[in-house]
Design a protein around this nucleic acid. Sequence first.
DNA 1: GCGTGACCTATGATCGATCATTGATCGCCT
DNA 2: AGGCGATCAATGATCGATCATAGGTCACGC
Lengths: 219, 219
Amino acid sequence: MTLPSTDHLTLTNVNALNAPALVRTGLGDQIRQVLIDGITSGRLQPGERIVERRIAVELGVSQAPVREALRQLEALRLVETVPNRGARVREFTEEDFAEFFPVRAGLEETAADLAVSRLAGRVEVFDGHIERLAAAEGPHVMRHSIAFHREIVEAAGNRLLRSVWESLGIEIWTTLSVRRHHTELCGKTAEHIEIADAFRRQDPRVGRLLHDHVMKYAP
Amino acid sequence: MTLPSTDHLTLTNVNALNAPALVRTGLGDQIRQVLIDGITSGRLQPGERIVERRIAVELGVSQAPVREALRQLEALRLVETVPNRGARVREFTEEDFAEFFPVRAGLEETAADLAVSRLAGRVEVFDGHIERLAAAEGPHVMRHSIAFHREIVEAAGNRLLRSVWESLGIEIWTTLSVRRHHTELCGKTAEHIEIADAFRRQDPRVGRLLHDHVMKYAP
DNA sequence: GCGTGACCTATGATCGATCATTGATCGCCT
DNA sequence: AGGCGATCAATGATCGATCATAGGTCACGC
């Protein structure tokens, strides 16, 4: 396995006074991203051990931030750890994907039910997402689609719900699932419009509608 | 603030050869429990800073496991941390409690819907819980009630759902809410029986039933 | 008086080193 | 051969020390 050189960790863009958001993030978060990239790109194979000190050396950091990153990956269910025995990249089973979508669908159903009354028909927030989704191609489709769903969760106005939803690792797991099962993504735009319409007329069935929509991604 | 003496961390029960489950837990987990106890008991007041090194000294450990414990408390939303500025006990707002129950209710609704078909009417698993709940008094009521709900989540057979449900910190947050709002707990036994019955006859409305039941705990 | 910037302190973030657990290996005995 | 305990290497868990950042303080100049 070859991880990218240490340069990936050096202060990204040492730009001169026009940085809108100075990457002011701790090492742990950066390492997490490196490992996530490694897993999604296949550089880190399922079942492969992730040895804390080896990663630390390869990235030119100490063991502590690597541990922290591993804990985050564990929360995302991308690695599994055994106490005193370390972490390894998870084998993603069919069961994992089968379990993912009912939970995601349930959360979004809850979100939709909460959002309906809160939005009170004001669905302009969705317009941009739908337009961008319609215009998107390739891997961007997934990103914009998720942005639309995230907007719904946001609209529920429940920070806990939002945080739980994010903690599922929606992007990664949906991407992994679609990639593995060759899920058809076309036609989803129409459903998004349908869902937005349901919000517009405050249809009480919008929760169920969204739930069923999400389940169509399931294997 | 006075934390319990270090003894709380020494290997619990050095019993002689009849230990069913030797407390083989890392320092981080033990420290987390100490801090949780501190928060629920009021020894640690909302808004109070939790300084890593201070706790470490008081418990006779180093900074690392304390940090780890704090991360767990953050995940349970019992403390809030600002990067480079440390952690403090959260101020539990009404909004926190108001947000908690819809999420819990939604998850359990999902669980119930999944469990109905899986149980196929075999609801014996609930009997013991209902009996113990009926016989319980005082603080035990809450514990047994949650055990019943946990059994439903378990019965859904979805490990991710189970893990997300547990990550809400059901016990703590429900306890905190009931304590603060003096929620009436009597009569909940009857509803549990009703829910078990719905499972028995595989009533498709059991999800909604459970959802509404949970929401009755809400402020 | 008040804005400014050089210090200063507290403390989180990170490091390098050590401790402790685990599974593997090896030799011995039956 | 096979079981069994001693020994060993690998590595997670923990430690003690250092680095770096966020606020606070205070003297200075306007």
